[in-house]
Design a protein around this nucleic acid. Structure first.
Lengths: 123, 123
DNA sequence: TCGGGAACTGGCCGGATGGCCAGGACATTG
DNA sequence: CAATGTCCTGGCCATCCGGCCAGTTCCCGA
């Protein structure tokens, strides 16, 4: 069908882990319609992978805390989160407090930023 | 050779351009050893492409708003931002208000999340 | 059986936040 | 010059936030 109207897609790699980078380069390099970017070449898309070592130890968040965190990232207020999860505002505050503590954040905005930075959530 | 005991590499796609996203999804979806991530699934790597033309509106933020936004993303309170920028808390609130309006956010957490999503700031 | 963690709820309170009103200074552009 | 836009400041006020105290149910592991 559409082969010639679409030129090769140039992909750049930004992978911290050398092993993963090598595997991806091998896999992607042999795909027809794809080409890996030369150093400095402008790519249509970039494959990025955060360094797994940047995540110390899994920051043990409970399921409920993840629920609350996700809604926080949506900009939801405590009241909204409470309604959404069917719990009381007090309980939401309780979980938010735990989140602030575990994520070493000073406020909910900081907590979401930290969580996003660490890959705990995706914005 | 390298014994490929390695499982599939899960790839997430974050492509602004729907056409490019579709082409990449088709190409990458048929590569042995690769799998595209389900929505929200944690991926080993992410393919990103920010189409500069996809945000021509560029959400016209003034320099001062960008200053405030950056500090907000650091989790700074209005008082801290005021001290940092050498302006009054009222002025900070003013800029925050403009930010909330321009970014269509309900609060500072939402504003930071939106800005990060749109690539206005990097967490 | 006796912790202990997770989840949940309540009250209280100081401070932060955001919306609204008002104003002035300063530079760029028509 | 006048207009526009950015930046700055002030007050007022309803609401929200986060921290503190307290308690209750579960369920799991020592």
């Amino acid at each position: 069908m559409s082969e010639d109207n679409a030129p090769e897609i140039v992909l750049a790699l930004e992978i911290d882990d050398p092993a993963l980078a090598d595997r991806l380069a091998t896999l992607l390099g042999s795909v027809a319609g794809l080409r890996l970017a030369a150093p400095g070449e402008r790519a249509a898309a970039t494959v990025v992978a955060r360094d797994p070592r940047s995540m110390p130890d899994d920051i043990a968040l409970t399921q409920r805390e993840l629920d609350v965190l996700a809604l926080m990232a949506e900009g939801a207020s405590n009241k909204m989160i409470a309604r959404q999860l069917g719990i009381s505002v007090h309980t939401v505050k309780f979980h938010v407090g735990s989140l602030l503590d575990k994520l070493d954040a000073t406020g909910r905005t900081d907590a979401v930023a930290h969580a996003a930075r660490r890959g705990v959530i995706d914005l």
